[in-house]
Structures are given as structure tokens and as C-alpha cells.
């Protein structure tokens, strides 16, 4: 009775889903390694006859190297802001007993419910008034702000698991809140911090609406916007377009290989708790 018989139906279903997930990824990859005429002639499912890397080279030469760099800048800055601001916030939420802190926490919980679409009109004017329209800083600031609620939620969850005894032990010795934060809280919530790093990086890298509305020139274009423009302007060049899609995915997939747990935990923090 201990070992149940294998579930063939579930096994079959899992392979069907693998096909659904894998098919477009396969089409994407094989398309990028062939020329446009070959792709048009052989169809999306055929394996490339004449292997070529031209699509990638052309994309990088026609602006995607710049877009890639812009996206890296946005991502690094967003992560920097989040990592600087959220840990002290989470520490306060977990440890402070002030009424104001509770209010702030509720404000961030409310923030979970604000979709970025909803504030895009005033954001356009706030950023324009601040002179940051078509400037990467104008993309970075709102992107970081909208990553904060989830990050705060994740990190308070982690910090709450630090047992009160440890705080007691330090405060009995007369440690200041600052010392408690740096010597106890931060070291013990390393996993949470790496989760919010990965999560906010993902938000920044994949962000689309803020760049769409808040930038316009080639110098400030991020990679998601580059994909959209490529599609609307030169969408018939499917291999070139899909090579750009692959370029946009590459860094995330590499991070996924190395930091899968932090990422999955972050996503669980959103929905699972």
C-alpha cells in the first residue's frame, strides 16, 4: 500500500503541457537561426537548413545593444533603491510598536492593489513636471515604487520569523536599533533580501508600461519597448524579431539557472501565504 502505482493519465497530461509550453519556444529558437527567405519558405516548424547568427548580429547593430544597456541601468538602479529602502522599512514594521508604523504598513498593503495602469496618466504628468520625461530616471523611480509593496511583504514575512529571544539577548546588552539591524536582522534575513533583489530585478527587466508612456527616443529605449517597436515597424522580419525576443530573455534565464530558489520563493510570497 505504501507505493502507489504510477499515474499514467497524469504522465500523459504532463507531456501534453510540455508540448504547449515548448512549442512556441522551439519555433522561436529555430526561427532565429535561419534567414528570412528560409523561414518564409520552410515554415515555422522546420529545422534550419543553413545555420546563421546574422539575426542576432543585425539586432545588436540596429539598436538592441543600446536597449540592452538601458535595461541593465534601469534594473540595477531599481534593485539599488529597493534594497536600500525596503529592509529598514520591513524592520520597522516588524519591530516598532508605533501607530504610525501600522498605518504605513497598511498603506503598502493597499499598494499591492494599485495596478500601474491605474496611475499612468498622473505619472506621465508628475514625471514630465519633474523634467524627467524621456529620461531613464523617470522610468526607474516609478518602477522601484511599484516593486516595493511586494518586496515589503516578502521581507516582513522573513523578518517576523526571527525569534524574539534573539532580540532580547541583544537589547539586554543595550544594543541600539541600528546595531540590532546590522548585526542581527540583516544577517538573518539574507535569503529574504536575495529574494527581493531577484524579484525587483525581474520587475524592472520586464517592465513595459512605464517605459512605453514615459520615454520616446532611441537613447532611452528599454528592451521590452524595443521589441514592441520592432514588431510594429518591421514585424514581417520574424527571425530578426524573435532573435530580439531571445536577447531580451537571455539574462533572466541565466539568473533562473542560478537563483531559482530565491525567485520561486519570491513568487510564492506573492500568492502562497
Amino acid at each position: 500500500m505504501r507505493k502507489s502505482r504510477p499515474n499514467h493519465l497524469a504522465g500523459f497530461g504532463s507531456l501534453v503541457w510540455l508540448l504547449v509550453v515548448g512549442l512556441p519556444l522551439y519555433v522561436m529558437l529555430v526561427a532565429t537561426f535561419q534567414s528570412r527567405p528560409d523561414y518564409a519558405a520552410n515554415g515555422p516548424l522546420a529545422f534550419p537548413e543553413h545555420f546563421t547568427l546574422d539575426n542576432y548580429v543585425n539586432d545588436l547593430n540596429s539598436g538592441f545593444a543600446q536597449y540592452f544597456l538601458n535595461t541593465v541601468i534601469v534594473t540595477v538602479c531599481v534593485v539599488g533603491i529597493v534594497v536600500l529602502l525596503v529592509p529598514p522599512l520591513a524592520y520597522t514594521i516588524v519591530r516598532s510598536r508605533g501607530r504610525a508604523t501600522t498605518t504605513v504598513f497598511r498603506l503598502f498593503l493597499l499598494g499591492l492593489a494599485i495596478p500601474s495602469q491605474a496611475v499612468i496618466v498622473p505619472m506621465f504628468f508628475v514625471i514630465s513636471e519633474a523634467g524627467l520625461y524621456d529620461n531613464l530616471i523617470g522610468v526607474i523611480l516609478p518602477t522601484a515604487a511599484f516593486a516595493m509593496p511586494v518586496c515589503a511583504l516578502i521581507l516582513t514575512g522573513v523578518m517576523r520569523d526571527i525569534t524574539p529571544d534573539l532580540y532580547e539577548a541583544m537589547t539586554v546588552d543595550g544594543a541600539s536599533p541600528r546595531r540590532v539591524f546590522f548585526q542581527l536582522v540583516l544577517p538573518l534575513s539574507r535569503s529574504g533580501v536575495s529574494t527581493i533583489v531577484v524579484f525587483s530585478a525581474l520587475q524592472a527587466w520586464n517592465g513595459f508600461l512605464f517605459p512605453l508612456v514615459l520615454t520616446q527616443s532611441v537613447e532611452t529605449k528599454v528592451i521590452t519597448l524595443g521589441l514592441y517597436d520592432f514588431q510594429t515597424e518591421r514585424g514581417v522580419d520574424t527571425p530578426g524579431l524573435l532573435a530580439a525576443v531571445v536577447l531580451s530573455m537571455l539574462p533572466i534565464l541565466i539568473v533562473y539557472l542560478f537563483a531559482r530558489r530565491a525567485l520561486v520563493q519570491g513568487l510564492m510570497g506573492v500568492g502562497g501565504k
Binding site: Y91, T92, R95, G98, V104, P177, V180
Partner: peptide, 8 residues
């Protein structure tokens, strides 16, 4: 040893 509101 609890943090004040200023931290947030």
C-alpha cells in the same frame, strides 16, 4: 532597542 518610525 526597538526602531523608531524614522526608519520607515
Amino acid at each position: 532597542g526597538r526602531p523608531g518610525f524614522l526608519w520607515a
